[in-house]
Amino acid sequence: MDFSYLTNNPGTVLAALGQHIEITALTLAIAIVIAVPLGTLIARISILYTPVLGILGIIYTIPSFALLGFLIQYVGIGIRSSLVALVAYAQFMLVLSVATGLRGVDSAVIDAGRGMGMTDRQILFRIEYPLALPVMVAGLRVATVATIAIASVAALDDAGGLGALLFDGINNSFASTSEVQVGAIAVSLLAIAADLLLRAAQRAVPAARAG
């Protein structure tokens, strides 16, 4: 392993790492805002469940290069088309986990809540979401790791991030192989760190005690 690129350009690497985290965080924030209502909706209205997850599943299987290339034509080059692509990828895992989590809540618990006079809203926020949270966090974990990986491709879109080091190193014959290695290891470490963090969060979720 050759870390000379890191020791020679610590600022560039740190900036790329920062951009990568930023893209990932922004993607997940937008994705969650869409996925929670959508997952709740399809958990409630079961005729929507299969078609919605079917469409999201198809998007999930499109190769990221192809989707990004397609989006650049319509949304233009820049971080916006990357975000659209990343949010679209994250939807499948997130919507699936929200819907699965909600569907897994014991119907007797909901019946008891309703029978004691809780409103639909109170049932959703005090019973269903807290009890679905472990499954939702598990979905977020998978989506986060996938987003970090796919966000490397965003560099093609001029959005920066650790992917920039990878592509720069591959395209530029004058650049050292160290740049590629540093980029690759940084992306991997970021993914592992995020995974560990969310795993810890998953354990801390109060409803996990119910299991």
């Binding site: 014991d106 007797a108 618990v109 019946d111 008891a112 809540g113 309703r114 029978g115 004691m116 006079g117 809780m118 409103t119 019973i127 807290p130 009890l131 109060p206 409803a207 005690r209 119910a210």
Partner: peptide, 21 residues
């Protein structure tokens, strides 16, 4: 109103329906 009515009636079911969290 249904929610008011229910808050003033005790309700016990077979599966207990206790909130696990």
């Amino acid at each position: 109103p249904a929610t008011d009515l229910r808050r003033h009636i005790g309700y016990v079911i077979q599966q207990t329906g206790l909130f696990p969290h």
